[in-house]
Computed example of a mutant assay.
Amino acid sequence: MRVGQARPTVERRQLGLTLRRLRERAGRTQHEAAAAIGKARTKIVVLEEGVSTATDDDLVALLNCFGVRGPERKTVLELGAQARKRQKRRVYVDTLPDAYDRFADMEANATEISCYESGIIPGPLQSAEYARAVIEECDGIWWEKSKPEGENRLNFRLRRLETLWGSTEPKQLRYVLTEDALHANMGQPEVMRGQLRHLLSLLYRRDDLAIRMLPNHAYGNPARGGGLTIFGFGDRAAPVGYSPAVYGSSTYYDEPADVAALRRAFDRIWELSLSERESKRLITELEET
């Protein structure tokens, strides 16, 4: 980090990635964004990289340039206010609207993803039919049936898959699935068979993807009953940990000691799991039954 740059906290990185997404959606260049706030292009570069903050006036000018209005505009301004704070805390809890968009930004920007989830196929590995079945199970429980939130979440998941798997940047992707997730009754039986075929298709097509299965009888799982994700960014930024929740706010960890603990937990789960070859063989056997 160069002198004069801010510490790249989760809030600042989320703000930068959000502004990059909004700028690209609007079809604006970094030069045009810089002109909107009367600064050099380097200001936009460091802002989007999460190593600089922006004043409220600059954010307003950028949002005007990108044509952002309504609730989305309010959320970005609130995120900007949080990014300018320097309070010390162990975790960052994202309580602002559309938290899943900022999670997807972090996921797409990462060069390394290590993910463990219990009882469910992780989002990036889900087929469209499986993702729909997951949303339908939650419909009328976590949101009212009359609200469009379920369809919005499904559309988001599908866009998220396109962004992740459509990226041309090299990534290292490691996922641990629990055995019960492979046997779950998710929608109709054909949905689960299709999901197993989807996993095999990803493994055949992606050299950067590794999947391991954690058996039910495995002893010593340090994240039993929970889940975790670690985003790595190579030399560009420090890693960030994430803890998923069935319902509630997204929780991020960027303190080195916390990320190191999550890394130890994932590495332990990875060691306890079947090898990639054994896991692939098990998925194939289940798909053929």
Rank of each mutant, 00 (worst) to 15 (best):
Q5P: 01
T9C: 07
R21S: 10
R21E: 06
A40K: 13
I44S: 10
L63V: 13
F66M: 14
R73F: 03
G80D: 04
A83G: 11
Y92C: 01
V93H: 10
A99T: 06
E107W: 00
N109A: 11
I113V: 12
C115H: 09
E117T: 06
G119Y: 09
G123E: 01
G123F: 00
Y130L: 07
A133D: 03
E136C: 03
P148V: 00
P148Q: 00
G150P: 02
N152D: 05
L154I: 01
E162T: 05
L164K: 14
L173V: 08
Y175D: 00
V176G: 13
T178I: 08
E179C: 06
D180E: 15
A181G: 04
M186A: 04
G187V: 08
P189L: 01
R193S: 05
R197P: 02
H198T: 10
Y204P: 00
L209D: 08
I211D: 00
M213N: 06
L214S: 07
N216H: 11
I230C: 13
G232R: 14
F233W: 08
P244H: 05
T251N: 03
Y252K: 14
Y253M: 11
D254Y: 08
E255F: 02
D258A: 14
A261F: 10
I269T: 10
L272W: 08
S273V: 12
S275H: 09
K280P: 00
L282V: 12
I283M: 09
E285L: 04
L286K: 13
